[in-house]
């Protein structure tokens, strides 16, 4: 089993690098849409290196120190529990029967840690942001859970590997085509999870300076930054497994996660922003109704 630990480390580092690169590509695409040259795609790496060696002299309490760890742990937890390549003994990571439930828990874990840390930092703006973030989380959790539980009932399994196995055998066995309404609900919830632009009021760099991490700097911020990148990659892999039929080799995994990434980028760049109550209202109406169509269909069948 010892080699599993080595591979877990490699997957984490690789996930971080991939996440940072995706962030850089996203910045570049946004810049090109604005008609600018934009930073290099490796800009996020440089930012991370700089943040690692910035000095820090602030102390705000225990939760303040623990929050970046929670964030990082949530990200690494999601990435390591989701099978990246189906059937591979190494890149299935630590997936086991029932891992879907644990992943759902880990996805909330990071956000809660962030909220506690931000509230502990004592800055009024960073305490304001978690209230928005948690309200929005309550919004997107509903369509997301409808879509995930619908899939679990349909395939009679709570294991992600089981869901991937059920989708093998051609493109039309994917859940995206088998249960299109559940997939649409899940993908709209994904936009909310990534705080992509219609639902970006949590970070809201214009109104509340930088959202929850207002008081965080240097190493803390770099931990949050890398936790966010790893979490992002983990969620891409999870959605790939849930809706796009998983992957049987690494190249397929890259192509599919990149396609999901492109959805986020292009939606982000064309939409203005919802307020929190509008976002929650949106999440509780359209995706829920769309998801319930398939949910009822599964029960009738």
């Amino acid at each position: 089993m010892w080699y599993k630990i080595l591979y877990a480390f490699l997957v984490t580092v690789g996930g971080l690098a991939y996440g940072l690169l995706l962030g850089g590509i996203s910045r570049k695409i946004t810049a090109r849409i604005h008609g600018r040259r934009g930073p290099t795609v490796f800009q996020n790496f440089i930012d991370l290196i700089k943040l690692l060696r910035k000095k820090t002299a602030i102390s705000h309490g225990t939760m303040f120190f623990l929050a970046p760890m929670f964030r990082l742990l949530g990200g690494v937890g999601v990435l390591l529990l989701v099978p990246i390549v189906y059937g591979s003994s190494i890149l299935s990571n630590f997936s086991f029967g029932g891992d879907l439930i644990v992943v759902l828990y880990f996805m909330v874990f990071g956000c809660l840690g962030m909220a506690l840390g931000a509230a502990d930092s004592g800055h009024p703006h960073s305490a304001l942001a978690p209230t928005r973030g948690l309200a929005q989380m309550a919004g997107y959790e509903l369509p997301f859970l409808i879509s995930v539980i619908g899939l679990a009932i349909a395939h009679k399994t709570v294991s992600i590997s089981g869901l991937v196995a059920a989708q093998q055998g051609g493109i039309f066995h994917w859940n995206l085509f088998q249960y299109p309404f559940l997939s649409i609900a899940g993908l709209i919830a994904m936009l909310g999870m990534y705080m992509a632009y219609p639902f970006s009021v949590v970070m809201a760099p214009q109104e509340i300076p930088v959202g929850p991490p207002t008081e965080y700097s240097s190493t803390f911020l770099s931990f949050m930054f890398s936790g966010r990148s790893i979490f992002g990659v983990g969620k891409y892999v999870l959605f790939m497994d849930l809706f796009l039929g998983g992957a049987t080799n690494l190249v397929e995994a890259f192509v599919k996660t990149f396609a999901l990434f492109l959805i986020i980028v292009f939606v982000t760049n064309v939409f203005p922003r919802y307020r929190t109550e509008q976002a929650v209202k949106f999440f509780w109406t359209y995706p829920v109704v769309i998801g319930l169509i398939d949910f009822i269909r599964i029960f009738i069948k």
């Binding site: 600018r36 207002t214 965080y216 700097s217």
Partner: peptide, 16 residues
């Protein structure tokens, strides 16, 4: 003028 191409970007808090 796009200062971001040199890596210059703005943040809203003095800590960062």
């Amino acid at each position: 003028f796009d200062a971001e191409r040199f890596g210059v970007s703005t943040v809203g808090t003095p800590r960062q």
